[in-house]
Structures are given as C-alpha cells and as structure tokens.
Simulated scan of single mutants.
Amino acid sequence: MARVALALPDALAQRLAHDASRHGHEVVADCIDGGELREAMELLRPSCALVLADPRYLDADVLASADAVGVRLVALAGTSSERGLAARLGVRETADTESDWAGLEPLLGGFGRSDTPAPAAHGTVIAVWGPGGAPGRTTVAISIAAELAALGHRVVLADVDTHGASVAPALGLLDEAPGFAAACRLAGTDSLTHDELDRIAQFYESPAGGFRVLTGIGRASRWPELSAEKVSAALERARSWADVVVVDTASSLEADEEISSDFFAPRRNAATFAALRSADHLVVVGSADPVGLSRLLRSHADMLEAAERTDAVVVMNRVRSSAMGLGAAAQVRQALARFGGIHDAVLVPYDQHAFDSAVLAGRTVTDAAPRSPARVVLRDLAASILPPPPRRVRSRRKK
C-alpha cells in the first residue's frame, strides 16, 4: 500500500483520490499548491506524490523537498507547457493527466510493480578524472566506454560532472531530462531498479557495440541533486545492471565544507568524491603540454587522497612535439617520473582531425575514426583495464 500526497486541481484530485482508494492506497494529503505540498511531505512523509506540472504546484523547491525526505514525485502533464516544465525540472516520472490508475501504478516506486530491487552489485566502476583546463576527461571516458562495449561488455556511461556536464552533447544525445540526476532521485527513495535504469538511460547505437548513457545535469545550478549518498547508491545499483560503469567526473577537488559553517549542507564536489571512492579503477587524464603536466603533477596526490587509494592509471592526452619539442613522448615520461613518481603512463598521440570528426558527427572516435592512432591507444587502454568477457560456447548434442 502506498501513502499518496496529491497536489492537483480539484476535479483531477477527486478522481485520482477515488482511484487510489479503490486500489488499496491511502491518500494522506490533498494540497492546494506547492507550498502546502512541501509542508505535507515534511510532516507526513508520504511514499509518493502526484503533482500537476504547473508552476502553482511544481517548482524546483518542491522537487528539492521531495528529494530531501525521500518522496517519489510523479508529475502529471496534459499540455505542451506542462510537459516542458517537467522536462526543464528533470522529472523523469511523468504521466498524462488523463491516465487511469493502472497507468500510474508502475510510477509509484515499486507499489504494484513486478520488478524487484536490484540484486547485489557485481559490475566494475571506472572513474575518469583530470585536473582543470580541459585535458580531455570526457573524451577519454567516452572512448573507454565505447571500446569496452566493442569488446562485448554491457556498458553504461554516467556523467557525474557537477560543473560542466558534456557527455550528452558530445554524443548528440538529448539532455533535457538528465538521466543520472533521475537515477540519484530514485536511489534516494530506494526505488532504483533495473527497469527504472532501462527507462531513464539513453542508448548510444554503434555498429561496433552500443552502450547506455546516464546524461548529466544540463545546468550547473542543479548540483544539489547529486549528493554523495545518492551518487554512491546510484552507482552501486548501476554496477548490478551493467558489466561496466564508466563515470565522467568533475575536476574540482575543493573540500567546500572547510569554507562553510553549515556542516550538513550539500557539497558541490561531493559527487566527484563519491564517484572516486566508489571506483574499482581510476583513470587520471592530463594534457601533454607544459601547463597540463604542471596541473596534473600538482593535483595527482590530492586526487589519490580524495579517492582514498594509492594507485591510478595516468593517461597523457594530445602528445605532440609542437608543445613538448623533439622526443615529446620521452620528455613527458621523464617529467612524470622525475616530479611525480609516475611510471608506465599511457600516452595518447595528437590526432585533432579524428576527434574533430567525432565531435562534428556526435559520435565516438571508435565510430568516427576507427584507424586513428589515438583510438588504437585508447582501445588497448580499455582492454588492459577490463579484458573481453569470455565467449559463450554452445554445446552440440550428438545425434
């Protein structure tokens, strides 16, 4: 049985309240606007809320209150403007205002659902991080996801960047309703199941091997939706849904609680810290030029401390003699070893044409430039992190 709160016009509220009672649910609040709904969620703690996607009933404050107390919020929309508001706010759980209760039941967070909560986690989480200055974190994360998918793994790419999410535009995907924020919201109410992940994820199609994408927040101001607890929970559920979860993180490692007097306030960089600590493998991306090397060497130790580990794969991107002089690869390796104690770094050669072609087409480098020397290095990197899965051999019965 669900405990339902309503924030709807009178006629719609009466119809759905009657339907809810007929299906064995309890309507605990019938609110006249969003402010009253926020109070009801705080005091009564319903399991879910049905809200009209209209500014009178639904706004960012209502959504934040629902997230804070763990209420599953379903937006009802009957017009294009109402559907647009739900999309702008990132509400994935939406239904038409004419829907009957049978159509609403699957959206209420497990009540009447056939899907069970996700089983224990088994997949691998790979977090991709790099210092500020656009060293190519997102490009490397996308390439690792694409190459692992091409190897035969079931892959999901999650954009956890709270400062400048860019996976969706890089792959030509829509990001009006960010998938990872929806995953965090569902994880916060303990209702993130495999069916839900299938619903909120977008699919990147590729002849080499497609993969799923949980898109990032379209506006940086939405970072409070990605709290550390929700990010950790969402990644744990995702790793039981896929063989590999590749996470694109933000660069900032600032511990903002040190400059705040409110120790319980949400932290903008908490998502990055949570992703790094949830990872089984860390990939650190730096730009192979004097400035990029300096940034990586200064922040590498801080990243390991934030991730609470001692090792990571270092990838130096865009290796070229025009920025490092003759013998660019040797100079990069020497600088890493001398000043950072970093050995065996992966060096990605500079191939601007290949990456420009990929961005222009909204494709991965695997698809846009399969023969690129940069792509070959990234393919080998992915295979070294996670080898191809064993092939299934069909047994033949003797006649």
Rank of each mutant, 00 (worst) to 15 (best):
A2R: 11
F203Q: 09
E82R: 11
G216I: 06
A250I: 11
G35R: 14
V377S: 08
L282S: 12
L192H: 00
S251G: 11
S81W: 03
R371G: 12
V365R: 08
R3Y: 01
V377P: 04
P135N: 06
E258V: 15
E26L: 15
S384K: 08
A146E: 01
E196I: 03
G210F: 00
F180D: 02
D54S: 12
R83D: 01
I142H: 02
Y350H: 14
V245F: 04
S252V: 09
L6R: 06
A5Q: 00
S357L: 15
C48Y: 04
A323E: 14
L296M: 09
D59P: 06
P117M: 04
A95F: 03
R38I: 13
L381C: 02
R83F: 09
G188R: 12
I126F: 12
S143I: 04
Y57H: 14
G112M: 05
V28Q: 07
F339D: 07
G84V: 02
L386N: 07
R219M: 10
Q352Y: 02
D248T: 01
R379D: 10
V348A: 09
L226W: 05
L226A: 02
P117W: 03
S260E: 08
R363W: 11
G90A: 09
P117I: 05
V91P: 10
L157T: 07
F111W: 13
T138N: 01
L378P: 02
S227C: 03
F264Q: 15
G90S: 08
R268Q: 14
V4D: 03
R397Y: 13
E82V: 10
L6S: 06
K230V: 06
G218H: 14
S221Y: 12
L360T: 13
T162W: 03
A181T: 08
T310W: 10
L108Y: 07
L157K: 08
V346D: 14
G179P: 10
Q202N: 03
G179M: 05
S65C: 13
G340F: 00
K230Q: 08
I144D: 10
L381H: 04
G109V: 05
A242V: 06
I126C: 12
A250D: 15
T97P: 08
P119D: 02
G130D: 10
D356K: 03
L253A: 11
Q334V: 10
E82P: 12
